[in-house]
Amino acid sequence: MINMIQDKLIKWYKENKRDLPFRNTDDPYKIWISEIMLQQTTVAAVIPYYERFINRFPTISSLSKADLEEVYKLWEGLGYYRRAKHIHETSKILMEKYDGIFPNEYEDILSLKGIGPYTASAISSFAFHKSYSAIDGNALRVLSRVFEIKENIALNKTVKMITELSNKLIVDHDSSSYNQGLMDLANMICKVKNPQCTNCPLSDDCLSYKHHSEKLLPISIKKVNHKELSLITGIITYEDQYLLIKNDDGLLENMYGLVQYEVESPYSFISKFEEDYHERLEAVSFIKDYRHVFTHRTWKMHVYHFVSSKPLDHMYTKEELLTLPIPTAHKKIITSII
């Protein structure tokens, strides 16, 4: 069985693979950018971002010379903004340490900022055709079903075990087609719910299909401490200008956002703002409640309109707002109001 699966998978992939812009290249830079964008984001959502980004920054050199704010603006809407900061920093490292040439050794790739084992394996396989298994959630789902692995795939020890199993499959085979075949099979046939087993090229070898456990597997139970924050969020204006503050650190580092506080009322917001910025605001009206879900937290934003009696630092016109990198959580508020 173990000697048949990879051949069937690769054959199926070559006949059915999706036509994706980042597959039509073996440029490690472009593959790296696509893999970072694809973290926690769907392929369909990534494609237009990837094409715009590569069009603007076609090389490591061009990215390394870019202003970080422009990188953030092109990333706007993708979320997980620290990824954008890391690729910008890494592009500079690649210029300084590797003369702008992406390294081809796994350990060197893994040492780069923002690159973990999966991404290092994907680049090694897709760009350099080396025998590394790129094990993400899709690969875990397919392999846990094929081999009827009943351990929790959310645990590191299970991931390690499946990776070792997959590394045996990949030896002396086309690693790129194997890894991308797992991705496409997961996307097109071996889906999270209602897998289309009768159309699967691996159905004859799949133990979970044989034992009717394909709808039970994989077992993926994650312990998540999810926090909900109740925030007063301020649309602060002076005449036709709006106040946005650049975040220096934290969840939305280097992005521009509305001022918000975890306080109990707009009047408490005014007091806190005066304490921080030494200016007094007037509360004008309640606008609307908004909710935005992050991976480990939820913002429940109670949006109020506040007015300043004089212009403040960091105030922007409507036209200027369009040029700033603004996180989705606040952009949906701003675009619905101004």
Rank of each mutant, 00 (worst) to 15 (best):
N3I: 12
Q6M: 12
Q6C: 09
L9Q: 06
K11S: 10
D26K: 03
K30D: 08
I31G: 08
I33T: 01
I36G: 02
M37S: 09
A45T: 13
R52N: 12
R52A: 14
F53H: 04
N55F: 10
R56A: 07
F57V: 08
I60F: 00
S61D: 04
L63W: 03
A66S: 13
L68E: 10
E70I: 08
V71R: 02
K73M: 14
L74E: 04
E76V: 11
G77I: 12
Y80Q: 13
K92N: 00
P103Y: 03
I109A: 11
L112W: 06
G116K: 05
A127D: 05
F128H: 02
S133V: 15
A134T: 13
I135Y: 06
G137S: 15
N138V: 07
I149K: 02
A154W: 00
N156H: 08
N156F: 06
K157M: 01
V159D: 03
M161Q: 11
E164R: 14
E164N: 11
E164Y: 13
N167G: 04
L169S: 02
H173E: 10
H173T: 15
M183W: 02
I189P: 11
K193P: 01
P195D: 07
P195R: 05
N199L: 13
C200E: 01
P201C: 02
L202Y: 03
S203W: 00
S203A: 09
K215T: 12
L217C: 13
H226W: 02
S230C: 09
T233Q: 07
T237W: 08
T237Y: 08
L243E: 01
K246W: 15
Y256A: 12
S265V: 10
I270E: 09
E275G: 02
Y277C: 03
H278V: 08
L281I: 09
A283T: 02
A283M: 03
F286R: 05
Y290R: 06
R291Q: 15
T295M: 10
H296I: 04
R297H: 12
H302E: 07
F306M: 03
S308G: 14
H314A: 05
T317P: 08
T317N: 05
P327C: 09
P327Q: 10
I334M: 06
T335A: 11
